[in-house]
Deep mutational scan, measured.
Amino acid sequence: KKRTSIEVSVKGVLETHFLKCPKPAAQEISSLADSLQLEKEVVRVWFCNRRQKEKR
């Protein structure tokens, strides 16, 4: 599977969401993915990776 490069503008939206809610529910991930025209899996993994980054 190819890596998905995420646009800077999209990263901004994801970051804003992350600050409000670092662990979104599946439904939130779905609606976020739809509005950003990304796959749900890509958004889910982004949040996973972002949470791990917080720990470091």
Rank of each mutant, 00 (worst) to 15 (best):
C48I: 14
R3A: 10
C48A: 12
K20C: 03
K40P: 15
V42P: 01
A33G: 01
A33F: 02
I29E: 03
K40H: 13
G12H: 14
C21R: 03
K20D: 04
H17Y: 15
S31D: 15
S5A: 13
K20H: 03
K1R: 08
E7C: 14
E54Y: 06
K40I: 04
Q37I: 11
A33L: 05
E7K: 15
R50P: 01
H17W: 10
L38A: 03
T4E: 13
K53N: 05
A25F: 02
R50K: 06
Q37T: 00
E54A: 02
P24L: 03
L14C: 05
R3I: 13
A26C: 10
E39Q: 05
K55T: 07
E54Q: 09
S30Y: 06
Q37C: 10
Q37E: 14
S31R: 15
S35M: 13
K53F: 12
E7Q: 12
E15Q: 02
K11H: 10
V8Q: 15
R50A: 05
I6W: 09
K1N: 07
P22V: 06
A33Y: 00
R51Y: 10
K2L: 11
V8G: 15
S31V: 12
K23C: 14
E28N: 11
P22I: 04
V42Q: 09
F18V: 05
F18M: 01
N49Q: 12
V43W: 00
P22M: 05
S35V: 06
S9D: 15
K40V: 13
K20F: 08
V10D: 14
E28Y: 07
F18T: 03
K11N: 12
R3V: 10
S30L: 05
Q27N: 11
E54H: 01
S31Y: 08
L14K: 04
T4D: 15
I29Q: 05
A25N: 15
T16H: 14
K2N: 11
G12S: 15
A33W: 01
V13T: 06
I29P: 00
S30R: 10
E15R: 00
T16L: 08
N49M: 08
P24F: 09
V10N: 09
K53L: 12
C48D: 12
R50E: 02
S5M: 15
L19A: 10
S30C: 07
I6A: 06
R50L: 00
A25K: 12
I6R: 08
A25S: 15
P24T: 00
V43Y: 05
K53V: 09
F47E: 01
V8M: 15
E15W: 00
